[in-house]
Structures are given as C-alpha cells and as structure tokens.
Design a binder for these strands. Structure first.
Lengths: 339, 339
DNA sequence: TTGAAAGCGTTACCAC
DNA sequence: GTGGTAACGCTTTCAA
C-alpha cells in the first residue's frame, strides 16, 4: 500500500510537491512532475479515498435513492446515471428505499445523514413530509428525477403533455370510448399517475367528451395492466374502443389481456402507452417516448453544476415526450353494436 | 457539523471516552455513557464516514459489480444484496460494468483499485483474463453470484441440474422434439448458458435421444426469445413439440411468438423456462424456480463472514432449482403429421 | 474507568 | 517552484 509519502520519497520531493504534481493543482515544474508521476506509476500508487475525502471534504461519490431498481424506468435511469458518473470518475452509492419499508426509514434516518456523498439524486421518491424534512437537512445538492419538488432541481418528462398527446392521437383516430388504465388510489407513483391522468382528462374535455372520461385503477406493472384490462374488457357490452396506459408496461399488459380474450389489436381495440419501453417494439405499441437513460445523464449534469457552484439556483428540466406511432392504434371501426 | 470533540466537550469527557461510549467498545461507566449518548443526541452527532474509515481501515461499504441492472435476474439480486446490507448498516457502491464497454475497463483499472469497499460482490461478471488478474490484486474478499470461479466464493443455482430437470419434465410428458432456445455464440452469459445447455443435452442423451438434440441461439432477453422462436416455429414442417428456454424471459418470448403464429400453448407446443420470473405466473409458465433475491442475501452473508475472518477458506453455495408446474406444458399430442 | 497523544493518508496554506 | 506543517475527524494504544 504505497502512500503519497512513498511516492514523494522515491521522487526525492516532499509530500506537498508530490500531491501537487499528481493532482495538477498548483505550481510544479514539468520535470519534477514527470519524476513524481513515474514514481507513482512504479509504486502502483492509488490515493486513499478516505484520506482525500477527509482533507478535501469531497467524497467523489454520488448517492442515488430510488424505490425500485427492478422496474424498467428506474433501471434505465440508474444506468444513465451510472454511465455519466463513470465518465467523471465518480462513485455511485445506491439506496433502495421501498415505500413504507423499514429499510426506507433506516435510509432516511441513518444512511442519508452519514452524508457519504457530495450530492444526491432522488428518483421517483415521492417523499412524505417527515422524509422531506430529513432531506432538506442534508445540506448537499439534490436533484429529483420524476415528479416535482420546490426545493430540489428536477429532471423529468412532461407527464401531463404526454398523456394529453396520447389521448389526442386516439381522438384523431375517431375514438370516443377511451379509458385511462393505471394508477392505484394510493400509489407511490402518485405524482406521475396524477399528471398523466390529468393530461388525459384535459384532452377529453377539450374534445367535449367529459362524459366519456373513465379511469380504471391498476398496479403500475405489466401484470397489473394485464389484470386490470382483463377485467375491463371481459364485459363485451361496455367495452372501450381505446385504452391509454399510464405507462408502456400497463399498456402491454392490456394488449396481452386483449389477445387472450380474442380481441384484435388494433382492429377492435387501440392501445397507446407512455415510455417506449424495451418491449414496445415487440408489441408494436404506439407510445409517447421518453428516454430515462437521458434523464439520468441530465440529472448528473445538473447535480455536478450545483456541486461546483453551490449558490446556483435550482434548475427544472422538463422534456417533451415524442409520439411514436406503431401499430397498436388504428381508426375507430364502425361497430355493429353502435346501432 | 458537530464532531466527536463537540460531543466530548458537552459531556465533559475526552474524545477517547466519547468514542468508546458511542461505539460500545472498551470500558465506560454506564453513567458517562449515558451522558455522552445524550450529548451526541442533542447535537445531532453523526460520525464522519471518511474519518472512521481512515482510522479503522474499514469503509463500511460493499462494492457490487454487475454487467446489467435492467434485467430481471440482476435487478433481483441487487435488491437482495441491498436489503441485506441495509440491515447491517452497510453502504453499497454499484459498478455497472457492461461487457466490452469503455466504462468496464475504467471500472477495473481505476475504480476497483481505489478499494473504497471492504468486500466485493461480482454478479454474472464472467471476467476475461486481464480483468481476473486485476480482481485478484484487489486484496479484499470477493464473492461471485452466478457462474463459477476458483478464486472467489460462489453463490449460484445449479444450472446444469435445472436444465436437466426441465428437460426431464418434458420427456416425461412424452415429448421428443425438444429444442433448447437461448444463448448467443459469444454471450457474456457464457458460463450459465453453457451449463444449462449441458443439462439439457445430458437429459436428452440419458433418454436415448441424442439425435434429437437441437440448440437455437438467441439473445438472452424476452425480445430475443421472441425473435428466435418466431423463426424456429415459422416452418410448420419441422416444428418441435416442446421448447426449453435458457431462462424465463426467453421462454416467455417464445410463448408470445407461438401465440402470434396461432400455435396453441400447451396443446401444440409445450414451453418450460428457468427462473420463475415475475411474468411467469401471468403466462402460466412451467419453470424451474430460482430466487435471485435470496442469492443476493446469501452472497452478503458469505462476504461478511470472509471480511470478519479473512483466513476463512472460500465457500461454494449451489442451490437446486425447484420445478413449478403451471400450464405451459402438457403431454405430447398425437399429431396428424406423425403418420 | 478515563484521558493524552499518536496515528490514518491526504490536501492546502504559508514561508522560503 | 518547493517544502514544512497544520488541519481533516476519528480510533486506539498506553498511562494514569
């Protein structure tokens, strides 16, 4: 375990000079720098992260808190963050804070307080009040991905717009009986669900179809969408002609359910999602694309700026989703039952 | 930023005593301990991780390296690890090392060398030689999840057995034309694919059906299985009556492909997977269950023992998968084409 | 049972 | 341009 003292000794300089030569901060003649570098190389010198942290107050480590890692959106964001941090030579400490779990309480009470990071990225956290307060105490820059927050920077997609655009797409195809599937009453995804539901409602209202607004709850997962749609579609009499899924996973669940019931997609039923999930292509799903990986990268950019310049005011980056038309949507068909 | 000195001052003792009182190591009278604890409480004292690390040589942090986080198995393992670590009050630093990426090289060259962790869990890594060498240099306990390794402890499912069992299940149902789907020629999943393929082959051979052994390559993802199966099943003439998927994702892709081609599962085609993926239930998939979350937890157990007792010899934990019969498999039907 | 002081490995300030 | 040296915040001997 060669330390900087060993490097200095071998290069015939002081620790101070060695430090400067290695970090590139401050004056060093290029010849000594060369000598020091070589010495470090030869000794296989690796600075001790703990010591650097102690001395500089910077841990070179970013914390990431998210409630799930096994769901597409979260996993993608995480990968985006990881990649961006890697390029900067920063470590990433992961905190998996499942809503309501004992672990979550522990994370907020103990782990975050330890502040083993220079900044924090909170993905889809939806903190409750107590948690929010603990978060503010942390005194490190925080950026939220997904949702909204008055006290952190935010990187997210415009959920309201996405759902509205999805609904308009169906309306333009002549659909009227459009139901919005997704979002449990007490979802920890609350903000997003709500925004997307609102966008759907707005589009319906603007089309003068307030009376047709219909929202079916479901767990926000593929099996959840499957179950909800299976139920919704089982009654042939008041079956909608189109579905807006709160996200692609739910939409795909709905497509699978429809197929099992012998309902043709898109001939009998149009389905649109939001995400552009990795399975979207396979199910020919029309969707509003967001790129969570990019959101992760952006979150890192924003966070690093705030770390570099603490006085900076908070940023809010809200990206528009782009409509991708595949073949899960089609014009409303004249139905025999419409007599 | 109250430090231990502040706590000591407030409690009217020395830093040394305060340290002992707080950590519970060494002699302290219970009255002073009480006083110190209270003082710490009142000041909201939180020890500086960096300083503790410097002084003790322990970072209270575990590194986790995996090639993906957005795939079911990896995400589940990660959650299991995270939970177990959380309970122990340990942090988790994540390194996402995509095979062949520039980031991966960086992780091995720079990040792991920094040793900001007391031990390492490598999930499905399949390191190449150079990487293996770097890994051994680290001088910290390492446990591998998935695969095999002579120089680290291993926690994994018995892949050969699982595939063999899956195949036997189909054989028992009367199937002969059983094809194994999954595994690209140069997969970074190589070891697992290989073991499972071997298990399938063994079962076929033992049943005297060596001539029927057939392996179709596919990317080890749901869309990959879909594509491979769509291709495999398109030709009605030499269509198998059963498929063993290298994992559930591939198996489910195959089921979806079959349905789209109008092939009935399980009437015309039996499909069995390995995993018990979260979607397995929804597709009524017969499968060999492994519980990656448990593997993650076990990996943590093993690792912590090795950290506590460095001389300990390496452990190898290989768990058997359990057959779960749902309804994607059925007895081979007498076929009209079998005339 | 307690306290003083010596590390742990860097960085950064201030003379030289 | 370079070298002392004091932090950084904690743990851990060793004496008292």
């Amino acid at each position: 375990m060669a330390g900087i003292a060993d490097v200095a000794a071998r290069a015939g300089v002081s620790k101070a000079t060695a430090s400067r030569a290695l970090s590139g901060v401050g004056y060093v003649s290029s010849t000594t720098q060369g000598r020091v570098r070589r010495a470090a190389e030869e000794l296989g010198y690796v600075p001790s992260a703990g010591a650097v942290g102690l001395a500089t107050g910077r841990t070179q480590n970013i914390g990431v808190v998210m409630p799930y890692v096994n769901r597409w959106f979260f996993a993608e964001v995480l990968e985006g963050i990881q990649q961006a941090l890697l390029e900067q030579g920063l470590d990433l400490t992961l905190y998996d804070a499942k809503p309501g779990s004992a672990g979550r309480a522990r994370i907020f009470d103990d782990f975050l307080a330890r502040k083993r990071f220079d900044g924090l990225i909170a993905v889809g956290l939806e903190p409750v009040d107590r948690e929010l307060e603990l978060l503010t105490r942390i005194d490190r820059p925080i950026v939220s991905v997904v949702g909204s927050s008055d006290l952190t920077s935010v990187v997210a997609v415009d959920d309201d717009y996405a759902a509205c655009r999805a609904t308009e797409h169906l309306l333009a195809l002549g659909h009227r009986e459009i139901v919005f599937v997704g979002g449990a009453p007490a979802s920890h995804w609350a903000h997003v669900d709500q925004q997307r539901l609102a966008g759907y409602q707005r589009a319906m209202e603007e089309a003068g179809l307030s009376a047709f607004v219909r929202h079916v709850h479901s767990e926000v997962t593929l099996p959840g969408g499957y179950a909800a749609a299976a139920d919704l579609l089982s009654d042939a009499r008041d079956r909608p002609t189109a579905i807006v899924g709160v996200c692609d996973e739910v939409a795909i669940g709905a497509i699978i359910a429809a197929r099992r019931l012998g309902i043709q997609v898109p001939a009998d039923l149009s389905v649109v999602g939001i995400d552009d999930h990795e399975f979207a292509e396979m199910f020919a799903l029309t969707t509003l694309q967001q790129v969570p990986r990019e959101q992760g990268r952006s979150a890192v950019d924003v966070l690093l700026s705030e770390i570099a310049e603490p006085a900076r005011e908070r940023t809010e980056l809200r990206m528009p989703a782009r409509l991708i038309v595949r073949s899960s949507t089609a014009p409303r068909r004249e139905q025999s039952s419409s007599l």
